[in-house]
Simulated scan of single mutants.
Amino acid sequence: MSDEVLVTDADGILEVTINRPEQRNAMTKAAAEAIAEAMDRLDAEPALRCAILTGAGGTFCAGMDLKGFLKGELPVAGERGFGGLTSWTPKKPVIAAVDGHALAGGLELAIACDLVVANVNARFGIPEVKRGLVAGGGGVVHLPRLLPRQLAMELALTGDPITAQRAYDLGLVNRVTDGPAIAAARELAATIAANGPLAVAASKGIVRDSWLWPADEINTLQAPYIAHVFVSEDAREGARAFAEKRKPNWQGR
């Protein structure tokens, strides 16, 4: 694991911190590979229920390390894309905790996560056109699906950022906080981690994959995601815990 990314865990939550604060956490290939490795760990360890991705030093990620780019380096991890996360997703949820700037690849990394929590002073944008580049890590593809088309077009063509509050009002951000984003992200992660892990993973998979499912095939396509959940030990435990007015003891099976 590269020292450009710090990984800790507590109470079922994996925290992954981009650790290049002097470079505003600009992404390198080593950091991208370390994030991908951390996400593999998230899926591999049953005790881990959720992950938080954040940045050290008061900023999330300012995008690609341009010095590395000039040397021919791309901050991707194989087929997993920018930051090791923009072209795939782990089975378990990932929350972006955004302080400061989430710009260029940083914004693409944030929206590649399943949920976004931001400090009120955070800014989101894809300024690639200001450098003669294109937001090719998912920005120009996914933003028109997440925002009104005209606003996505404005972000792509002007390169100007929007505030965290504006992003929240448009549904790009789940929660805005006056304090550090990591604190609010931990609260959200704890809520998720308290739920049935099989049900959480299935729900995430359906929400992500059903984007273009034909309406008349939804039930058929959804079935493989949920069939094992309804016959699981966790499903029975959830019902028993409700009847007995206690917290469930999830087994993940």
Rank of each mutant, 00 (worst) to 15 (best):
E108Q: 07
A30N: 13
T220L: 13
A239D: 11
F82H: 03
P93F: 00
A51K: 12
Q165S: 07
V5E: 09
T54L: 10
Y168D: 06
H228M: 04
S87D: 15
E15V: 15
R41V: 15
G55K: 05
I111A: 00
R240A: 09
Q251M: 06
L170M: 06
I35W: 03
S210G: 02
A164Q: 13
K204H: 03
T177H: 10
G68M: 04
E237H: 01
E244A: 04
R246G: 00
A135S: 09
G78M: 10
M1V: 12
E45A: 01
A164V: 13
V134R: 14
T220D: 14
G81K: 09
A44I: 12
V98T: 10
A181W: 11
K67L: 12
D209R: 15
I111F: 00
I13N: 04
A241R: 10
R186G: 00
E4R: 08
D43K: 03
R20D: 02
T17H: 02
A185S: 08
A30R: 15
P197M: 06
A156I: 12
V173A: 02
L147N: 07
L115E: 12
L212H: 08
L115P: 04
I162W: 07
E217C: 02
P224M: 02
R131V: 08
M27D: 05
I126Q: 05
I35Y: 03
G139V: 09
L151V: 12
L109M: 12
P90H: 01
G125K: 12
T86D: 09
V231S: 14
G78H: 13
A110V: 14
I111W: 04
W211D: 10
L53W: 05
R166P: 08
A96C: 02
L170P: 03
P93A: 00
N195H: 13
A194Y: 13
A164G: 11
R208F: 01
C61G: 05
A31G: 08
I162H: 06
T86H: 03
V76P: 07
A44S: 14
D43M: 01
G81Y: 05
R41Y: 04
G63P: 10
S203V: 07
R208W: 05
G78T: 11
E128K: 01
L6A: 04
Q251W: 06
V141E: 14
E233Q: 13
I182S: 03
V200S: 04
L146V: 08
T28D: 08
E15W: 00
P197F: 04
V207W: 11
V140D: 10
R24T: 07
R131Y: 11
A235M: 15
M153W: 06
G57E: 09
G12T: 07
G100Q: 12
T163E: 14
P214L: 08
Q251R: 12
V98K: 05
G81E: 15
K247G: 02
L143E: 07
N195P: 06
T158A: 00
K91M: 13
K130Y: 02
V141K: 15
G57C: 03
I182T: 14
R145D: 12
A32D: 08
V94M: 00
L133F: 01
G159Y: 06
L14P: 04
A44T: 11
A51E: 11
R49A: 01
D9W: 06
A185I: 14
D114S: 00
R175C: 02
A31H: 04
R175T: 15
F69K: 13
P148G: 00
G125S: 05
A47S: 14
A235G: 05
M39G: 00
I162C: 03
I206D: 08
E33M: 02
V173R: 11
